[in-house]
């Protein structure tokens, strides 16, 4: 009995132990501090959003987030973010490829500037993009004769969202391309595959997890973007109003619950993308491990 009990206690102990044993000190207070900080700064404020929305009731919540104007802004936000992320996936891949494989003057400089949208405050990106892409701006002038109006249309929104998501694909794909085994390509070539075939059959599948992660990151970032879009979008209800802008607009009409409801939907979308990215990273790691074996 005593022996059995002891074993059971040990098993229980192992099953419910908060952490694996470590000789390093400080687990307790670092855990405490981290949780406290997280709670104060993140969890409590964010949970308020849900509390505020809970006051609405399900049917009110549903009608708040499916009102035509809200639905249109969701459509625009998702479409423009998706399009921007897709543009970044294609061109970001080309940029990464160029930076990894080729050499040309000023390459280091170009490599460093790719990160600019990370470091540049969005308000600055906003006024700069609006200046450049408006009808009288440097690029807007060139687009005008083609019948394309960029600023204050969904095109402008997409431009801004492409800008903010630009570094993600490049930075995700770059290391994957660097780590690519040249032997695989050589083998493919040896087997008679053309360059395109090698790319399509050998390189792309290997880099795919990284590319998808980059896409998801660019998408997530674009979805929440506010500062740079607000200047260039034109804020037309049903046409160029993105979701974060709509939240601000609801606030200005004193509709806190409506704003909170839309925010909750956005928050859930962020959660899902976060989850997806974690899955992709796990998949990427597994993929590479399998390649390595």
């Amino acid at each position: 009995m005593s022996q059995g009990g002891g074993r059971r206690a040990r098993t229980l102990n192992r099953a419910f132990a908060l952490k694996r044993h470590s000789v390093l000190p400080g687990f307790g207070w670092t855990l405490g501090c981290t949780l406290l900080y997280l709670c104060l700064l993140v969890l409590i404020p964010l949970s308020l959003l849900f509390f505020r929305t809970a006051g609405l009731g399900w049917s009110d919540f549903w009608s708040a987030v499916t009102a035509p104007r809200v639905a249109a802004s969701f459509k625009l936000s998702f479409a423009a973010s998706g399009l921007g992320a897709a543009l970044n996936a294609v061109f970001g891949f080309i940029v990464a490829w160029t930076l990894v494989r080729y050499s040309f003057p000023g390459k280091r400089l170009i490599d460093a500037t790719v990160d600019l949208p990370f470091a540049l405050p969005t308000a600055v990106s906003g006024i700069a993009l609006t200046t450049v892409y408006s009808r009288t701006g440097w690029i807007g002038q060139l687009l005008e004769p083609l019948g394309i109006q960029a600023a204050f249309t969904p095109v402008g929104v997409t431009v801004a969202l492409t800008f903010v998501g630009l570094p993600f694909v490049v930075r995700a794909v770059q290391p994957a391309l660097q780590d690519l085994d040249p032997e695989a390509e050589e083998a493919a070539a040896t087997l008679g595959a053309g360059r395109w075939q090698t790319f399509y059959r050998v390189i792309l599948p290997t880099v795919m997890p990284a590319l998808l992660t980059g896409f998801a990151l660019a998408f997530a970032r674009a979805l929440g973007e506010y500062g740079s879009v607000v200047f260039i979008s034109g804020n037309m209800p049903m046409r160029t109003e993105i979701v974060p802008l709509l939240i601000v607009s609801e606030l200005e009409q004193y509709d806190y619950q409506g704003a909170a409801a839309i925010a909750v939907v956005m928050l859930v979308a962020s959660f899902v993308i976060l989850l997806l990215i974690n899955l992709l990273q796990w998949w990427g790691a597994r993929h590479q491990r399998r390649e390595g074996v």
Binding site: P45, L46, L48, L49, T122, A220, L223, G224, E225, Y226, G227, V243, P244, L245, I247, V248, L251, A259, A260, A263, M266, L267, S270, F271, I273, L274
Partner: peptide, 12 residues
């Protein structure tokens, strides 16, 4: 992953 507008809203 949270939109900056939401980050402001929660403190309001």
């Amino acid at each position: 992953a949270v939109s900056p507008v939401i980050s402001g809203l929660i403190f309001v």
